[in-house]
């Protein structure tokens, strides 16, 4: 049964990479079911994240957000700060796709704080870029400028010419 779980996960990932997002979802849902049977929270977290990603490419952003929230909850339970940051970043981007910029800012700030705690300058730069864009969308030009300047500073430091 455990091997079946891993196989569903591998199939889900393969369908995803092939661009077959409906089949990816079906496989990852099976993977999730088996992970729940075993009480395997790390595997549940992976399945929720993979499901969220697949729903993004299906254009079902609300459903993606619900899955990323489950992944975030599990990341916190597992006390894995890096994957917690990743879930926050995914939620920030998903709420941007939903044009809910206030929520997007909330999650991008959570991502920024963890990136700073973990001394992840690339993550911090991405958070600032995202926050600058969300504030621009809301017409908060002073805040947008603040984050654009931080993004520029970090990009110079990390050698990101783009």
């Amino acid at each position: 049964r455990a091997a079946q779980g891993r196989t569903h996960g591998n199939l889900g990932n393969t369908y995803y990479l092939l661009g077959n997002f409906r089949r990816a979802v079906a496989s990852h849902e099976q993977r999730l079911l088996i992970a729940k049977e075993f009480g395997d929270r790390a595997a549940q977290r992976r399945a929720y994240c993979n499901l969220g990603n697949a729903f993004i490419f299906l254009g079902e952003f609300e459903v993606a957000a619900e899955h990323y929230k489950k992944a975030l909850q599990l990341a916190r339970q597992l006390k894995d700060r890096a994957v917690e940051a990743q879930a926050c970043y995914s939620l920030g981007n998903t709420y941007t796709l939903l044009h809910d910029y206030e929520r997007a800012i909330d999650y991008h700030l959570k991502h920024l704080i963890i990136a700073q705690d973990l001394n992840d300058r690339i993550g911090e730069g991405r958070a600032c870029w995202s926050l600058g864009n969300a504030h621009t969308a809301l017409g908060n030009h002073d805040q947008a400028m603040h984050f654009a300047e931080k993004h520029l500073e970090i990009s110079k430091e990390t050698g990101d010419r783009g």
């Binding site: 891993r6 996960g9 591998n10 990932n13 995803y16 990479l17 595997a43 977290r45 992976r46 399945a47 994240c49 993979n50 990603n53 993004i56 490419f57 254009g59 952003f61 970043y89 995914s90 981007n93 941007t96 796709l97 991405r126 870029w129 995202s130 864009n133 969308a137």
Partner: peptide
Amino acid sequence: KSRMHAIQVDSVQRWMEDLRHMTEVE
């Protein structure tokens, strides 16, 4: 698909480009 074409935020576009090749491996 029309929703996908409406994406204009460059940081989100970049995230999606990366996401397309990202999987949580078993």
